[in-house]
Computed example of a mutant assay.
Amino acid sequence: MSLKPICDLNVAKRYIAQAVPLGEDPCQFNAIWAAPGQVPNFVYEGDDPEVFSTADDAEAKARKVLFEALNARRPARQAYVPNQPGLRRAVKFLKMTGEEFAVAQAAADLTDAEIAFAWGTTPDRVVRWKSGADAVPFAMHWVLPLLKDEKNYEFVLDVAEQKTVDK
């Protein structure tokens, strides 16, 4: 099963596992699934959305795929973006591994707390990025090298400080 979004920017607000009629044919269905915050995805068989002969079969497969996605530890080295005007196909972004992130962090000479504050997250999340438990945000490919420069680092800290309030 591959992850290929089926729409632009329509992010799920709840868990979705449902059958979708395929055109006018009442005997063919696709299955879609998503967790909150994700763009809904078809259930794929190879490169094409899988076609089911009953709505029950499609919904059951969508539930299975959603269940597997929720219970899998994602290596998450790639992300798909929807087709946009001007793009002929979806593209794949290669995300950093935890090890690559740790090397880039050391090269930038930044602590977990400094990265967390600048990124607007917690030091625990940064540790999870390094361990591979959570996916490293794609932007870290360019954020960490930029933060090596003292001027950029100070700018980011100023912005973060202005946009932070005490609990």
Rank of each mutant, 00 (worst) to 15 (best):
G37N: 09
G98P: 04
V136D: 00
M96A: 15
F117A: 11
E99Q: 07
P123L: 04
A35V: 10
N152Q: 09
V51A: 03
Y153I: 14
L157Y: 09
V159H: 08
L110K: 13
V143F: 04
L110G: 08
E99G: 06
I115Y: 04
A113N: 14
W33I: 02
V127D: 01
V65D: 07
A113Q: 06
K13Y: 03
T97Q: 00
G132L: 04
V43N: 14
Q105W: 02
M140I: 03
S131K: 11
E100L: 03
D109S: 10
Q28R: 11
V143S: 01
P85C: 06
V136S: 00
A17F: 12
G46W: 15
R88E: 12
Q28F: 12
F93W: 06
D48K: 03
S53Q: 05
V11E: 00
N41E: 15
T54H: 07
A76H: 10
G132C: 12
A31Q: 06
V159S: 09
T121H: 13
M140G: 00
K61M: 06
D25I: 12
E50S: 05
P82F: 01
V91K: 14
Y80I: 06
V43C: 11
A76N: 10
V156F: 07
E150G: 00
T111D: 00
A19K: 02
Q84W: 08
P21T: 15
A19N: 06
D47I: 09
W33E: 11
L87D: 10
S2N: 08
L146V: 02
W119R: 12
K130M: 04
R88P: 08
V81T: 13
E114H: 04
N152L: 04
C27R: 10
V127H: 01
A107M: 01
K4N: 02
R73V: 05
D134I: 01
K167N: 14
K64N: 07
G98F: 02
A106G: 15
G23D: 01
I16Y: 02
V11N: 00
V103L: 12
A139H: 11
R77I: 09
I16K: 11
F138V: 13
A31R: 14
P21S: 08
E114K: 03
T164D: 14
